[in-house]
Structures are given as C-alpha cells and as structure tokens.
Write a protein that binds this DNA or RNA. Structure first.
Length: 328
DNA sequence: AAAATCAGCAACCGCAGTGAA
DNA sequence: TTTCACTGCGGTTGCTGATTT
C-alpha cells in the first residue's frame, strides 16, 4: 500500500504562482511565521496550494535576502570545488553561498557551469602534451610550497576552517607492491585519475589494509594495484609522505563501491562509473559526460596549470570536517 | 514567417530521515 | 519499539522565451 498523499491533489492548484498568491503567502509568513507546520499553512493563508508547494515557493523565491541572477566567478569556484568534494549535495553547497538556494545552484550547475567546465577542459586538453606523468616535475611540484599556498588561497575564502587535501594516484605492478620499499622508485605515475571524496577515503583508511584487484586504467585486467596518497598540508607545510611511501593506502575498488557510508552512496556510484567506464550520466536529455574531462578542472590554479601541464594526477579536495566525516 | 529546437528555470515528485506519540 | 506524519532533499519534468532552421 502506498503512502497517503500529503494533500488532496484534486483540490490544490498547481503550476506557476501568481503575484496574488505570492503576496498572500509572503504577508502571512512575515506576520505569523510558518508555525512549524507547512501542511496546515495553506488553509491558514487561504491558498489552494499543497503545503510542500508553499514551502518551496517561500524557500526558493519569497524569503528575504534571496539572490537571483548572475553567479560570480568566486561563486563558480566554490560550487565547483564543493561539488568535486561532496557531490551533488546542493543544500550543503547552498549553505556556503548566502542568498543562493539549492535549487538555483542545481539549475546553474546543470545548465551552465558543467558545460563551462567541459569547454574549459577541452581547451586545456588541446594545449596539453599527451604524455603521462613526469616524475621530475611531480617532485618539483611537491617541493613547491607555492603550490599549496596557492591552493589554500583559492580555497580559503569559501571555507576558512577547511584545509585542502591533496591526493594522487599511483599505479604499480603487483610485484612492486609486494616489495614496495625496495622498488619504490619503480612506481609509475598514472596518467589516468581516480578521485575519491574525503568520506570515502575515511572509510578506506578505517579499514587500513586494502588490496586492489583492479587497475583503473585497464578495467578488469587485475595486473596492477592502485595506491592513493594523501597530503594534509596544514599551515602550509607539505607533508612529503609520498616520498617515503609510508602512508599510502592501496585501495580495493570493491571496498569503495560497496562502502556503507550513507554520505558517500551517490559518490560511490560516480566513482564506480568513472572507474569502469570513465563516464557519468547526466540528465536524461544530455549525452553522457566524461568525468575524466570534467573532474581535473576545478582546483587547478590557472598559473599552475600553465607551468606544470604534464602533472595531472592531482586534485585538491576540501575536507568535509563540517560534516563530521573526517577521522582525526 | 512559421516550425523546430534549445536553454533556463520554477515547480513537482518521491524517497529518506526525523521526531513525536 | 513501532508507527506515522511531516520535513527536507535531490532528481526530474514541463513550461516559456530565445534562437535556429
């Protein structure tokens, strides 16, 4: 048996709101508040609308200090950065942008920002050498404190309490894994990228030992292992743990995909899809969007990208400490 | 000028979470 | 502990105006 509807659908008006309806609702809420009960509100206001509809109209359009219109570059960056960190949790993203609603941001992402990023990446790719990683440049990058300083500057405005976290992926032959300390210099940097949200990495790190059976480069060939390294450059200090290969975690994709974290379910799906097919689906009207095309864009400072074009395994995540997801 | 297509966005739908009874 | 009403969220739909053919 289905659930009882929240209102009598035959007797409620649907579709766009008229100015009169807006005025009634606005006036009532400004004078009396919502009373904590949206279901009974339409009756009180004498509106033939569903309570949910009233709530939506108020939150997305009528409430004070709503900002409509063009998004700024800064807002773009915040949205992108957060989207790459936490996925499509629009309400959380909206909370970082005063005056913007989750619906607005969602629409903006789906209609403009996503395309803008794709276009941007396409242009960058056209100017990027096709070779894989350059180990020397990677080392240079790690030693370049400005790299982190730049990232922190970029991220700081939106989220002062949040430290950027840098992850890279390494692909190593199975044999090298077994004797990693001896053969660490034989590790090769992958030119493909796999991204995980912070909560997934927390999940991964909580189990400590994971084995990988899949090479994200080659689907199910099972000949390589993937290693994730994380950096927590607090206070601008670079933790060169990658150099020592001490703190890496090899990741079994199954562990990630089957993660029970309630926060990461939808991200898991994306990870799964991008690992297995390199694509994610977008809206039903759109063609599939290549995640590989989309994901590397967000946190690259343009200046860095220009000078370090061959180094592409990096991505800066925001630590979602605000969600209580980060294990300290 | 008309029809077709596209893009933007407001609104709806259904599910999951929450808290009171 | 269970049930159920309600809220909040994210995905999707469909309307409308703009643009292209």
């Amino acid at each position: 048996m289905g659930r009882a509807p929240c209102c009598d659908k035959a007797n409620v008006k649907r579709g766009p709101w008229s100015p009169e309806e807006d005025a009634k609702l606005k006036t009532y809420i400004e004078q009396h508040g919502t009373g904590g009960n949206w279901i009974t509100l339409p009756q009180k206001v004498c509106l033939k609308r569903c309570g949910k509809s009233c709530r939506l109209r108020w939150l997305n359009y009528l409430r004070p200090n709503i900002k409509h219109g063009e998004f700024t570059e800064e807002e773009d960056n915040i949205i992108c950065s957060l989207y790459m960190s936490i996925g499509s949790r629009w309400s959380i993203i909206a909370a970082q942008l005063p005056g913007r609603t989750d619906n607005d941001i969602k629409n903006y992402w789906n209609t403009k920002l996503k395309k803008k990023l794709l276009l941007c990446n396409k242009q960058r790719k056209d100017h990027r050498p096709r070779s894989g990683y350059n180990h020397n440049k990677l080392e240079m990058m790690k030693e370049d404190k400005n790299f982190f300083a730049t990232h922190q500057a970029i991220n700081a405005y939106s989220w002062p309490l949040v430290q950027p976290v840098l992850f890279s992926t390494l692909i190593a032959p199975q044999n090298d894994l077994a004797e990693s300390s001896a053969n660490r210099n034989n590790f090769q940097y992958s030119s493909d990228q796999v991204y995980f949200s912070q909560d997934q990495l927390c999940q991964i790190s909580s189990t400590n030992q994971l084995t990988s059976s899949m090479n994200p480069l080659n689907g199910n060939t099972c000949n390589s292992s993937m290693i994730i390294s994380g950096y927590y450059p607090s206070n601008g200090v670079i933790n060169n743990s990658l150099q020592e290969y001490n703190n890496y975690i090899s990741v079994g994709l199954d562990d990630v995909v089957n993660s029970t974290s309630t926060h990461s379910q939808h991200v898991d799906k994306s990870v799964f899809e991008m690992v297995n097919s390199s694509t994610i689906s977008t809206t039903s009207q759109d063609q599939s969007t290549s995640w590989e095309e989309l994901s590397p864009l967000v946190s690259y400072p343009p200046s860095l990208f220009e000078t370090q074009q061959q180094i592409s395994p990096y991505y800066v995540f925001e630590e979602p400490t605000y969600l209580g997801l980060l294990k300290q």
